[in-house]
Write a protein that binds this DNA or RNA. Sequence first.
RNA 1: GGCCCUAUAGUCUAGCGGUCAGGACGUCGGCCUCUCACGCCGAAAGCUGGAGUUCAAUUCUCCAUAGGGUCACCA
Length: 486
Amino acid sequence: MTREIKTRIAPSPTGDPHVGTAYIALFNYVFAKKNGGKFLLRIEDTDQTRCRADSEKAIMESLRWLGLEWDEGPDCGGAAGPYRQSERQEIYLEHANILIERNEAYRCFCTPEILAKDREQQQKDGNRRFGYNRRCRNIEPEVSAKRAASGEPFTVRLKMPIDGTSVFRDELRGDISRPNEELDDQVLIKSDGFPTYHLANVVDDHLMGITHVIRAEEWIPSTPKHVRLYDAFGWEMPVWVHMPLLRNADKNKSKISKRKNPVSLQYYKEIGIFPETLVNFLALMGFSFGNDVEKFSLNEMTEVFSFEKISLGGPVFDLEKLTWLNGLYLREKSQNQLLDDVMSLYLNKEYLSKILPLVHERMKTITDFVDLTTFFFNADLDYSLEGRLMLPKTRTPKEMSALFEEAAEKIDVLVDYNHEELDRIFRGMAEERGWKIKEVFMPVRIACFARKASPPLFESMEVTGKERIRRRLRKAAEFIKTLPVQ
RNA sequence: GGCCCUAUAGUCUAGCGGUCAGGACGUCGGCCUCUCACGCCGAAAGCUGGAGUUCAAUUCUCCAUAGGGUCACCA
């Protein structure tokens, strides 16, 4: 009897909801629905140092916004719960122990310091083979157990074959093989007791009945480890499907990254992209509907979907085509629908009441409000008029664009995006460089608002929102490079 | 660097041995029009290179090249 088709999206709640997560979720969703199966959501929060409290909620909201509803998940439950890995601790430990008993895994007592030293030595020796040297692989089981019992910290590692070749079948590419000497003994349980992705992922996928693992191409190199895990447990293998990676629009088409491209789903929502547009566009990244059809809904895609319609070249995420597609959807909407959309995005009391205090004193008539606040509603700005003011006479284009890029980075890692933090960042950068405050603040004002005069800088940046501000800083950095040295 | 994946215009793609290499974004030109936008019409622009298989390669094989990914107690 064939199993019910089940797929999953397993995001790690380490930051803003990522466009790549939506991309992979989309294909998992569509494949499951096409086959009358289930699509589930699992939260991979096993990295205690990187997980952020509000991230999980934001990810769920974004996926829902896109209409990628899951059948089982941390909020709606399901037969194979819990769906949050941090709540499945005992399950992983139990399974790690099974592997130790079967001699498929072992405790490793090497400290991070020793490992770092090993790596250093390997570098020095010009040894091309990195990875763990398997020092603890053959410790006698009794000795190992005793050391563990005595409280010595350890990790659990998977015993990989030392020679030979691992082969697995990727649904889109056929057989992929890798020499085993390339694979080292992967850590399964970290010394903090949490599992690594490799263990948690395989155990959960099996226990949750996942039949098709549709994930990003970056996982291909470690798939042999996962295959080994399934074999060690004696479990039935899922079908492996590795989707191409979304790419930046830079020269090299590198893997999509927040340094070069807005990757937060929140951003696309903020600039007025409809969820159906984004889903449609993401689908276009690698999937062909057929008959030259480019505009289609999630349901229409589901009807015609098959893996044969996926192409493997890494698709560049092109904002221009996304915007064009959005226009198609927009012109199709009734004016009533559109009115609701316009109001719910920015023209509502909540948003306007954040702006109003910033311009209150600057207004003489009600109509001034509009002139004073346009940049709170724009996606990108036009720098053709005031743009040159981003470059103080005392600074070079290179220096200035570097500052903007650094600012975008610093803002990205902010835990709390607010005007105090922004103030701290920009004053700090001026100070570090020994620049005058005005050499930083005016250029930033132009970059963020394209005007010499604006409401209070950092308050306005706060209201405009992290993603749009980061995008503007990056755009400004590009623009400055086109200016002549003064 | 080792290993792995990928390769049709600037970008997204169709093609699954014989096609004038099709569509879309963008670009350019024109039409519509009070302007702009929309819409419509048209144009420029592509099979990375080299061997091999074949009567015939964009398509199959190999090599090269290029790009990407990956080599963590991150996912």
